[in-house]
Amino acid sequence: MSKTRPTRVSLLSDLDDADFETEAADALFPSEDEQRQLALDLLLDAWEEALQAGASADIVASAALYAAFSDMVDVLGEDNVADMAENLADRIRHGEFTLQRTHH
């Protein structure tokens, strides 16, 4: 079941390509690292807001995973996301997502 996303109007649709200079384009389009940091900051803020509103951490996590996987499937397709997800169990077991290590 694939959900249809509304078409987003580009903020740049009224600008002509000739209007851009390299410096202006760099200012408008952050690097991938800057985009990742921005996205993470915004997600962590939303996560904290959900917790403060009374949602439990496991419910917020489940909702975040659902949103992430559904968007990835929408962009990359079910097979590509399924292939990526096959490796998640091993990555989790090897501590890739563990923030605080516990010693047994």
Score class of each variant (00 low, 15 high):
residue 1 M to N: 14
residue 2 S to T: 06
residue 2 S to I: 11
residue 2 S to E: 10
residue 3 K to D: 05
residue 4 T to R: 07
residue 6 P to R: 11
residue 7 T to H: 10
residue 7 T to P: 12
residue 7 T to E: 09
residue 8 R to Y: 12
residue 9 V to K: 09
residue 13 S to D: 11
residue 14 D to H: 01
residue 16 D to M: 13
residue 16 D to C: 05
residue 17 D to M: 00
residue 18 A to R: 04
residue 18 A to Y: 07
residue 19 D to F: 08
residue 20 F to T: 05
residue 20 F to Q: 01
residue 21 E to G: 07
residue 22 T to K: 04
residue 22 T to M: 01
residue 24 A to N: 07
residue 25 A to S: 00
residue 27 A to N: 02
residue 28 L to M: 03
residue 29 F to R: 01
residue 30 P to E: 03
residue 31 S to Q: 02
residue 33 D to F: 08
residue 33 D to P: 10
residue 34 E to W: 02
residue 34 E to A: 13
residue 36 R to W: 08
residue 36 R to P: 01
residue 36 R to Q: 01
residue 37 Q to P: 01
residue 38 L to D: 14
residue 38 L to S: 08
residue 38 L to P: 03
residue 39 A to K: 06
residue 40 L to G: 04
residue 40 L to A: 07
residue 41 D to A: 13
residue 42 L to D: 07
residue 42 L to C: 13
residue 43 L to S: 07
residue 43 L to F: 12
residue 43 L to D: 08
residue 44 L to E: 15
residue 46 A to H: 09
residue 47 W to V: 14
residue 48 E to N: 03
residue 49 E to I: 15
residue 49 E to C: 07
residue 50 A to C: 09
residue 51 L to M: 13
residue 51 L to T: 12
residue 54 G to S: 02
residue 55 A to D: 11
residue 56 S to R: 12
residue 57 A to E: 14
residue 57 A to T: 12
residue 58 D to W: 10
residue 59 I to N: 15
residue 59 I to P: 15
residue 61 A to M: 06
residue 62 S to K: 14
residue 62 S to V: 07
residue 63 A to G: 08
residue 63 A to K: 09
residue 64 A to Y: 08
residue 65 L to E: 07
residue 65 L to N: 12
residue 65 L to T: 15
residue 66 Y to D: 06
residue 71 D to W: 00
residue 72 M to Y: 11
residue 73 V to H: 02
residue 74 D to M: 14
residue 75 V to K: 14
residue 76 L to R: 04
residue 76 L to F: 08
residue 77 G to I: 09
residue 78 E to H: 15
residue 78 E to M: 11
residue 78 E to N: 08
residue 79 D to Y: 15
residue 80 N to T: 11
residue 80 N to P: 01
residue 83 D to I: 13
residue 83 D to A: 11
residue 83 D to Q: 12
residue 83 D to M: 05
residue 85 A to I: 05
residue 85 A to M: 10
residue 85 A to Y: 08
residue 86 E to N: 04
residue 87 N to D: 13
residue 88 L to M: 15
residue 89 A to M: 06
residue 90 D to R: 02
residue 90 D to Y: 06
residue 91 R to M: 04
residue 93 R to L: 03
residue 93 R to E: 08
residue 95 G to R: 02
residue 95 G to K: 02
residue 96 E to Y: 12
residue 96 E to R: 09
residue 96 E to A: 07
residue 96 E to Q: 14
residue 96 E to V: 11
residue 98 T to C: 04
residue 104 H to C: 06
